[in-house]
């Protein structure tokens, strides 16, 4: 799919249990930076970062600053919230490239 670019601050998700809230913003010249807060940092911190980074890579995002508040979300939820927040930040609110997403989101 066509690479997306972070254009403005955006938010997705909630802080209900089993959800994750992600705030994303531009991060010129500094790559991907993730600030993670999770009660499961010790057991799943590594995996949460991995899922977010993979999803960003699949969306073609190379620079972004993310503030992530995890409440025990499963991988599928983390991925969905990441996809949503990137689209919002890129200003895409219709004509989603579903086929492009489905190519890697299996």
């Amino acid at each position: 799919m066509k690479a997306l670019t972070i254009q403005k601050q955006a938010i997705a998700g909630t802080i209900e249990s089993s959800d994750v809230q992600i705030i994303i913003d531009q991060n010129p010249g500094k790559g991907i930076e993730i600030e993670l807060k999770s009660s499961l940092e010790k057991q799943y911190g590594r995996r949460i970062r991995e899922v977010i980074e993979e999803t960003l890579a699949n969306l073609g995002v190379k620079e972004a600053k993310l503030v992530v508040e995890d409440r025990g979300a499963l991988d599928c939820t983390i991925k969905a919230r990441t996809i949503a927040v990137v689209h919002r930040s890129a200003g895409i609110t219709e004509n989603y490239d579903w086929e492009g997403i489905e190519a890697w989101n299996v």
Binding site: L40, K42, Q43, Y44, G45, R46, R47, L74, D75
Partner: peptide, 10 residues
């Protein structure tokens, strides 16, 4: 399968 494999506590 649902939760993923947790890293062990150190």
């Amino acid at each position: 399968e649902i939760a993923g494999t947790p890293d062990p506590i150190e």
